[in-house]
Design a protein around this nucleic acid. Sequence first.
DNA 1: CTGTGTGAAGGCTTTCACAGCC
DNA 2: GGCTGTGAAAGCCTTCACACAG
Lengths: 206, 206
Amino acid sequence: MPRIDIPRKSIYRLSIYQRCLQRLRENGVETVSSEALAKAAGVKSTQLRKDLTYFGQFGTRGLGYNVEALSTTIGEVLGQNKLQPVVLVGVGNLGSALLRYGGFRKEGFEVVAAFDAAPEGRRRDGGPTPVLAMAKLEPFVRENDVKMAILTVPAPAAQEVANALIHAGVQAILNFSPTIIDVPDQVVVNSVDLAVELENLSYFIR
Amino acid sequence: MPRIDIPRKSIYRLSIYQRCLQRLRENGVETVSSEALAKAAGVKSTQLRKDLTYFGQFGTRGLGYNVEALSTTIGEVLGQNKLQPVVLVGVGNLGSALLRYGGFRKEGFEVVAAFDAAPEGRRRDGGPTPVLAMAKLEPFVRENDVKMAILTVPAPAAQEVANALIHAGVQAILNFSPTIIDVPDQVVVNSVDLAVELENLSYFIR
DNA sequence: CTGTGTGAAGGCTTTCACAGCC
DNA sequence: GGCTGTGAAAGCCTTCACACAG
């Protein structure tokens, strides 16, 4: 499967299709047209079909897509089929909220450990995920072959922590710190910056 | 100032430039070249210059940009110059973390009130922001002329709450609920979907 | 006749190349 | 000489139009 040449935006949309398919499946729907699925996902039907053709042909002409089969295929493409271990670094407000949230597991992710500069002070919320000292970060990632990390540390610490994560073998980082982090080409970073999102919205209110 | 025709991505980048400029300002830097600022923001210098020309000419050839002046201009473009009131709906894990976070104010936003279906049960964390019952949402938004909202309710409630917000006059929504919400054309929605971000990353780890 | 798959066209964004100003 | 501003070119993504399968 060609991991390059497929628009990044298509990959994003696959996740959205996947969520819609899961909902359809829960409702016992067996078949869906590109028109209907696209509407649920908030895109045009031609775009949905184009996105899918990057990975093969899954539909039946005149009928539509089999919900179960398409969902399975997308899951394979996205690598959802085995539980993916994730570490979270930075157990402040946002970090602890994400730990408590726990809704990742349904999507194929498990936060196996969290790390913080003051690990003892953070245990209070009594969640099941262990909160460990930063010194244990690199060995833990290495020993457990963790490939993904969620970064919720303050901006000044972000680059340093990212370096440590990458050094230990992490290949993908979801960055909530309000700063740009520099990474080697083979590492992927998605950034979610709350302030940027709000500012962007504020531009659009006249 | 033409509010249309300017790429949405440029607007996003303006926010990022703004953050870099603020940091420069704190460090007492007075002048910055497009090259240097672009590097800090993680983009190419030509793109930075192109982005800025959508709004006018701010640089001095041979010298660069005045940090203070450029920051002020971008602030005006983004509408940051007066404190923007925001409401938050859904005081669960994520919602209460965002309430406690409070770092918006520096960027020109103030969460003036939060709303939840079970407001009494949510007050525990003792933050300064009042948590009110859902019934008070529409009157509050109307009376305080609130234009922006942060949505952190469970997916099944998202559309209904969005409708109420829009009905009361909200023009921009930052949506953290894992679902697509339908809104009229004149309303802007930015969605942040944690699971989608993680899934997208997981595609890229081979 | 319904609905998918897809080459081609169109539109949008980024990058280039260089003119222009300090 | 250094660095910005910008039309033109390139690249990327979306949309169209329609062939084709059930």
